[in-house]
Design a protein around this nucleic acid. Structure first.
Lengths: 138, 138
DNA sequence: CTCTATGCAAATATTTTGCACACAT
DNA sequence: ATGTGTGCAAAATATTTGCATAGAG
């Protein structure tokens, strides 16, 4: 049961929060917009407002349960902060999101920031990719 | 004269386009939002609508004259596509944007994408940083 | 002259907020 | 009981579009 996640984040255990966590957990692509979540909730006959979805996601983000990404397109997508850090690759043809890790890149980032007198608080790395040798319809 | 830039991009040389190019060239920080540009134009007594600023920036982006970035904050910032590729470091305390290049990171990105059967069309790397040893007011 | 570009206002899209009521503890 | 959480509608923010007119080639 995920109620513990909420409690340990200092959030009261409420139905909307549980349902939203559930949506994020059960969604295969793992990256959903507020609208995506809202619509899935409507489909499940849940009576939860879009405003609540935004409020809850913002709280989750503040609590470190969720990460907000700004891939291209005017809207944000949210992802559960389970497991270790990773970056993303977005397939431009399908919108599919692939996760990857590179210790080497992480290390280089730290080195570069330090060379400039900074420390890295956070970073965002997104590769926009296309299938190799992928031809357009000729 | 930058009219040539416009012409070679297949865009008619109009006053709004020239003025907007000028703004982007003359702004020291090099990263401006549509609103920033609009306000600077108003300050210069230019009579150019915000809608035109957006339209022109979008055309510039399509023409490869300008790059659109989604750093944090709900709005996009635009940067002239002059010079070689580079990535960005955002100072979280001041908002200052520092540019950097890392051939090594670029190479690793390509390798990683290839390992997954993709080729990199574009990428976005932003480090969110703070001054080293920077203390908050105690 | 002809067709594209622009200004303005209205329309969209996304996210946030005010307020009265509902719910967790 | 008490204070936080929620739904709804309205506001705020960011960007796009329709349309009549102005301007480039």
């Amino acid at each position: 049961m995920e109620s513990s996640d909420l409690r340990s984040a200092g959030l009261k255990v409420t139905l909307p929060r549980l349902k939203i966590l559930e949506m994020l957990e059960s969604h295969p692509a793992r990256h959903m917009s507020a609208e995506d979540i809202y619509r899935k909730l409507m489909d499940s006959e849940e009576d939860i407002g879009l405003a609540t979805v935004y409020r809850v996601l913002t709280q989750f983000e503040a609590a470190g349960l969720v990460k907000r990404h700004h891939f291209e397109g005017g809207h944000a997508v949210f992802e559960l902060e389970r497991g270790p850090h990773h970056d993303h690759m977005v397939n431009l043809d399908t919108g599919e999101v692939v996760e990857f890790v590179s210790e080497e890149i992480e290390k280089l980032q730290k080195q570069i920031a330090e060379k400039h007198g900074f420390t890295v608080e956070d970073h965002s790395l997104v590769l926009y990719v296309r299938p190799k040798g992928g031809k357009k319809k000729p």
